[in-house]
Design a protein around this nucleic acid. Structure first.
Lengths: 117, 117
DNA sequence: TGAGTACATTGATGAACGTCGATGCTCAGT
DNA sequence: ACTGAGCATCGACGTTCATCAATGTACTCA
């Protein structure tokens, strides 16, 4: 049988391993989880994620994010890119606006890895 | 001389705010949560935490952590300090050995902040 | 076509971080 | 007191990161 392994490369996701407290993390798994957590470990990105998450449809456009965050537009754009590449947000462009939407499952997966549940 | 049963300085904890997705994080709360997450966002620290968590009594001494991690002793010591200051571990010295123990509640609190639960 | 808006990318800079070797400190035996 | 073991701290070095101004790109409307 040919093992056609499915590479869903779009969103990394963190479905990598057993919960942190269950059994020692392998180096590779630790590195992947660290990358994901590093994307969260910034005040600006946490606030961006939080604002998007509590917006209508868990979605917001960049123009509505710049002022509340209080950083320059390029910086906000940079943070949104980091969050998107980490799999927490998706980007969809409508007209001249770019809308970012939350991927709730991403946060849940991270959450589950941190507990024994 | 004094028998040192070391009560580690009370840990910050992350009981700061509502779940991330419920309502926009304030700057102060975002900064505190970011500091906590930054402590987790490193492969070596994730592995250390994981090894300690899956050890007997969720406790391990430094000497048992150096080899599995594959880093120098000062570096391991540094990471353990970061995790301790972030409230994930406690330190107790017995003889010449330093034992680090998991604080399970710390991980749970972080976990809960990332979901709407 | 031309101008303006919304957003991304680039390049640069200063700060923070991970890592190590060297050293200091404390405890247990001898 | 001396020696060695276990661990923490210090100082230094290279890398990564957050941030911004300047610029580029894509779209809208007149």
């Amino acid at each position: 049988m040919v093992a056609t392994l499915e590479v869903t490369d779009v969103t990394p996701g963190v479905t990598c391993c057993a919960p942190l407290v269950k059994k020692p993390l392998e180096q590779t798994d630790a590195e992947r989880l660290a990358v994901t957590l590093k994307a969260l470990a910034d005040p600006a990105r946490l606030r961006l994620l939080s604002i998007v998450a509590s917006s209508a449809g868990q979605e917001a456009c960049v123009c509505d994010l710049i002022d509340p965050i209080g950083l320059s537009q390029p910086t906000v754009s940079h943070h949104l890119k980091v969050l998107t590449e980490a799999g927490f947000l998706t980007r969809s462009k409508r007209g001249t606006w770019a809308y970012y939407r939350l991927i709730p499952k991403a946060l849940e997966q991270v959450s589950e890895l941190l507990t024994s549940a």
